[in-house]
Design a protein around this nucleic acid. Structure first.
Lengths: 133, 133
DNA sequence: ATCATAAACAGTAATAGTTACCATTAAGTT
DNA sequence: AACTTAATGGTAACTATTACTGTTTATGAT
């Protein structure tokens, strides 16, 4: 992977915020530094940075949001305004005694495990989908 | 809410599967019963059923998936083929001793709390966003 | 049973977020 | 400095979803 000013700028913008921004928000910000940067470049680099494990993708409603904070943590998402807040709490605490001191009205939990299913692992061994991401 | 054959059909299709289908999959299925049903009708009804709490929406990658199984459970999503599987396990077990007997290679957990943030609760009281979903 | 009302519809157009394409630029190597 | 090719900017295309509009239909009242 070759260095690029665009990617560096995108990453540092993400690292400087705690707001879990969308690609569009990043685009607006990075344009102040690189005025003619293309939106496609922003998307491409966000995908690459995710692939390299330098940022996390959160998919809320219809949009991706990005987070450069790699310390293990979870998120609270407001169903009204779509804001995302960091939650630093053990999963046990979260599901057991749900937040009393937290200014959120929590109405639901989405827990999702990610990985590779059995069938895909088998195919992987057979080399059948080396072409799949 | 008025009865409609279309909505009934959509709901019963969802209740008959464990595959967490997309709107498009539901559309294909329901067309076998109501051949001229419109895709817009499928989307509208899925949104209404969700609103009424009769189905759950799961948002994976760029698409919504739907689940009529209302018993509390979580999901495993394959990063390769996008399949979603039900996980019936306590959150404690899930995050503590992660699945050993399960045929998934688990590489990540997304836990997301949903609800209404402090700011939105205040606005709600003031009646400022009665127009917001 | 007929009628009136508006919810729900089918069909289509429009939108939003994202990806693909391609000619040009520039990072890194020789 | 010349070369190779990853990465870019600009634009077109694509996919999932929503909005619009005239028509149909469920349902409650006459």
């Amino acid at each position: 992977m070759r260095y690029s000013r665009q990617r560096e700028s995108i990453l540092s913008i993400l690292q400087a915020t705690e707001s879990h921004p969308t690609a569009d928000w990043v685009y607006d910000k990075v344009r102040r530094e690189i005025s003619n940067i293309s939106l496609g470049t922003v998307y491409r680099n966000l995908a690459q940075l995710e692939e390299m494990g330098q940022i996390r993708r959160i998919n809320a409603d219809g949009q991706s949001r990005f987070d450069a904070n790699l310390s293990p943590h979870d998120h609270f998402r407001c169903l009204t305004c779509s804001s995302i807040f960091d939650i630093h709490m053990s999963h046990d605490d979260m599901t057991a005694g749900l937040p009393a001191d937290v200014p959120f009205k929590v109405t639901g939990i989405n827990l999702e495990l990610l990985g590779v299913c059995n069938e895909c692992q088998i195919k992987e061994i057979k080399g059948e989908n080396s072409h799949v991401a």
